[in-house]
């Protein structure tokens, strides 16, 4: 498995650049143009991250996070998800930057190769900022009645939370 995933990134980068060059794309210029966009989105998330990092940091230091985790333990037990991951699961559909901050905190606390670190990674990678997508897309065409959208999107998120711990348990 490890050797397969080790091939993955280099082959993709090399393959795309080669394919682009063969198709007559000005590979380096287009790379720079794209990278510039990456830089501006990195800068764009910084203010939100400063605010949320401070809020999460204070929340954790005050002991409130432990209380929240404990309060949610019945729910996490039903889903078969370690309780430490519930704050991430709760924040993920609401705020992408907030989830990123909690994810980073979990990696610091438990390490990326622990069960909790792995489940956090899968959870982070397999779910999206549901409410943001709903707000942006419906907002863009003035939809006021979203009918069963939120219900279905949250079902997908719930399944994602449940499956992330299941797949890590089965595959590792």
């Amino acid at each position: 498995m490890e050797t397969v995933t080790a091939f993955f990134v280099p082959v993709i980068i090399g393959g795309i650049l080669l394919f682009g060059a063969v198709r007559g794309v000005n590979v380096f210029d287009e790379f720079i143009a794209g990278a510039k966009e990456g830089l501006s989105s990195a800068v764009k998330i910084l203010p939100a991250l400063v605010g949320l990092m401070t809020a999460v940091g204070m929340f954790k230091a005050s002991g409130a996070l432990d209380v929240l985790t404990h309060a949610l333990s019945p729910l996490s037990n039903t889903l078969g998800v370690p309780g430490e991951l519930m704050p991430l699961a709760l924040l993920r559909p609401i705020s992408g930057s907030g989830a990123l901050v909690i994810f980073e905190n979990l990696l610091t606390a438990y390490g990326p190769d622990s069960a909790i670190g792995r489940i956090a990674g899968v959870m982070q990678g397999s779910t999206e900022t549901t409410f943001y997508a709903v707000a942006v897309y419906y907002g863009s065409v003035n939809i006021k009645r979203t009918r069963y959208t939120i219900f279905c999107a949250l079902i997908a998120d719930l399944v994602g939370i449940f499956m992330s711990s299941l797949t890590v348990r089965l595959l590792f």
Binding site: I12, I13, I16, L17, F19, G20, R23, V25, V27, E30, F31, I32, A33, G34, A35, K36, E37, G38, L39, S41, A42, V43, I45, L46, L49, V50, L52, M53, T54, V56, G57, M58, L100, V101, E104
Partner: peptide, 29 residues
Amino acid sequence: SCAGAVELVLSLTGAMCLWSGVMNVADKA
């Protein structure tokens, strides 16, 4: 904590630039 946010963004900026760049080439190709 605010310094941690800057550190987090710094550690991600490189990857974000690299992949946006590569994927822009993919798009143009």
